[in-house]
Design a protein around this nucleic acid. Structure first.
Lengths: 113, 113
DNA sequence: TTCATGATTCTATAAATATAGAAACATTGA
DNA sequence: TCAATGTTTCTATATTTATAGAATCATGAA
C-alpha cells in the first residue's frame, strides 16, 4: 500500500501536471495567481483578469487543482485560489532530473545502436 | 516581423511544449531518449522500448518534435531521435521564473482583494 | 424568508487528440 | 529491378477536452 497522494515520482502524475499546464488559458490563470501571491485571488476576479469565466473557468481550475498546482479555500461566498509553489518546483525539477541527460553527472549513455 | 521560431517566451509556445509532455507515452519516449544520450535512438528501437509503434508512435513523436523537445535526423533508412536538452531546460526555467513567486526576489504581490 | 452574489453542475455540442490497420513512401542491398 | 526494412500517410473510429447557456447550489445580508 504505497499510496502517495501526488508525489510526482510516477510518470502518470507528472503527465497529469504537464497536461494541466498544456493550455494557454490555464497557463495564464497560473501566472495570474503567481502575481497574486500567497493571499490568493477569488475565482471571479481571477476569471475577469484572464478573460475566462463561468463553467469554463471552473473546468480549467479543476484540472489545475487536481494536478496539485493550485489550491482553493473558501472565504465567505468566494473561493480563493493560490499556487502551490512547491508543486510547481517539483515539476521543474522533474524536468531537469528526469528529462535532461548532461546535467547530474551520470548521463547514462546506452546502446546507441 | 518578429518571427522567433520557438522561443518559449510566449505562453502559446510554452503551452504547446507542456502539452507535448502531458502524456504518459510521450514522457516515456522522452525519458528513453534521454537515456540514449546525444547519439539518439532510431524510431523503431525507441518504439519497441517504450511499447508504442507504427502510426501512433509517429503521432506522438510529431508532437514532441514540433514542440522542439526532440529532433530527428535520418541515417540510412532509420531516423534517429534525440532530446533537445536546451529546450527542456528552457521549459524548466519558464516554470521557475514565470510560475513561481517566492524565488527570484521580487514576488510581485498585487491587490489581494 | 427573500434576495443578491459567487461558483458549480447539468446538458449539449464542437473540436482536438488517441488508437490502429492498411496502403504508400523512402532507403538500402541483392 | 526486386525485395526487405523503417517510417509515414491515409482513413476511420473512439475518447478526451473545450466551450457555453441554463439551472442549481452555497453563502451572506436585508
Amino acid at each position: 500500500m504505497k499510496q502517495e497522494p501526488l508525489s510526482l515520482s510516477h510518470l502518470t502524475l507528472a503527465a497529469t501536471a504537464f497536461a494541466a499546464l498544456g493550455s494557454e488559458a490555464r497557463l495564464a490563470i497560473l501566472r495570474r495567481l503567481v502575481r497574486a501571491g500567497p493571499a490568493g485571488l477569488p475565482i471571479g476576479q481571477l476569471g475577469e483578469d484572464v478573460g475566462v469565466t463561468g463553467s469554463v473557468l471552473t473546468h480549467h481550475l479543476k484540472q489545475l487543482v487536481s494536478a496539485g498546482l493550485v489550491s482553493q479555500q473558501r472565504e465567505g461566498r468566494r473561493i480563493l485560489c493560490s499556487v502551490d509553489h512547491a508543486r510547481v518546483q517539483d515539476l521543474s525539477e522533474f524536468l531537469i532530473h528526469e528529462c535532461c541527460a548532461d546535467m547530474g553527472g551520470h548521463s547514462a549513455q546506452d546502446t546507441p545502436q
